[in-house]
Design a protein around this nucleic acid. Structure first.
Lengths: 204, 204
DNA sequence: ACCTGAACACCGTTCAAGT
DNA sequence: ACCTGAACACCGTTCAAGT
């Protein structure tokens, strides 16, 4: 089969899933496609474009259900969980994309659009929406990134301070800390929104 | 002057501050030190060790004042601000370290030790301390990383949803979103801690 | 103990030449 | 239009040889 940009991205994704982004090489990518290394350059501009293409290809798969009738707390939880699921489907790629491709999540991407809509429904004043969207995006991507690169696991496996006891805490799963972070930020948002924090977008 | 490990780290840091981690090369590092590229390998194991050494060198500089009498909310704010200041002193290195060196922040590092102590003083039960420490670490490093790589700025510059007006929002500085995130997570923690959330560690 | 030249096994990418 | 061989300008690192 002939070379195509999407075919190249798909092959690159397979290699990345196995060996990580750092190990990806134009030459290895070519042999995986049974092609001459130089042939790739007829379909992609350079290696950076390959990585951008792969990230975009996976990022496009992100979908979250609307669920407009549910309370905003529930909707934000679902959005974050859907995002986490996508990240875990290609952890090596996503860990790279979050940190290296600052533009991986674009303003018009479904993730940020949905987040903005939810915060709007929650009653965040329009003038504050961008800041609250950024806040939500930071916390969600932050906790997922920390889970992907292992920091979340290491930090939550600390022994309780200097109590000098056995020092072993029952292993707290990453998903538990993920949920705790989500709950905490939601509670913080409720406080920020004051009394009308439980507004549920009644009939709209 | 003769080559030393710390001298190599210092030179590497200077190069990184200017051109970023990706542009750092053992050969460039050697010429910056007026040395033969191969001479470096007598003092450092390899390039990865150089990056680890530089990160450790900068990370060691992190200091935060104790301030044990202040309310925990104030202490956590100060800790996060000190951390942000350190990150901004070498943004290129820190942006790299947070994402690539999952072990950049070690359990016994002052940052996590202080964070644990503050959350302990705030009244977080001992059994939950590791999870809350991870949560705090994730949010603080997450928002600072997003600021360093520009995501925070881009996301907070979004136009308010589909109101179709001018579409221009006054530029909201990164530090404003940083503070908003901090305030929100602190409020969330207060909610999680319930009524005793305003415990201030009275006389201890 | 410390340095170094040559060399190895790679990279990404350009370009002229092929079909 | 698409492919490709050769080549360029780099990499990190090994190793034997020097002082």
């Amino acid at each position: 089969m002939p070379l195509t940009a999407t075919g190249i991205y798909a092959a690159a994704l397979r290699l990345i899933d196995v060996d990580g982004v750092e190990a990806l090489t134009m030459r290895k990518l070519a042999t995986a496609l049974d092609a001459n290394p130089m042939s790739l350059y007829h379909h992609v501009a350079n290696k950076h474009a390959v990585l951008r293409g792969v990230a975009r290809m996976v990022g496009t798969q992100f979908r979250t259900v609307a669920l407009e009738d549910a309370p905003w707390q529930e909707r934000i939880r679902l959005l974050a969980t859907d995002f986490r699921t996508l990240a875990h489907s290609h952890p090596k790629l996503m860990g790279y994309s979050f940190s290296h491709q600052a533009d991986f999540i674009q303003p018009e991407d479904p993730f940020l659009v949905a987040l903005t809509a939810i915060l709007d429904a929650a009653g965040v004043p329009h003038s504050e929406l961008p800041q609250f969207t950024a806040l939500g995006g930071v916390v969600i991507t932050g906790v997922v990134t920390a889970e992907l690169n292992g920091a979340l696991h290491r930090w939550s496996s600390l022994k309780p301070p200097t109590v000098g006891e056995d020092g072993l805490t029952p292993p707290s799963s990453d998903v538990r800390v993920f949920r705790l972070t989500l709950d905490t930020i939601i509670m913080g948002l409720e406080s920020q929104l004051g009394a009308e924090g439980d507004f549920q977008g009644a009939d709209h």
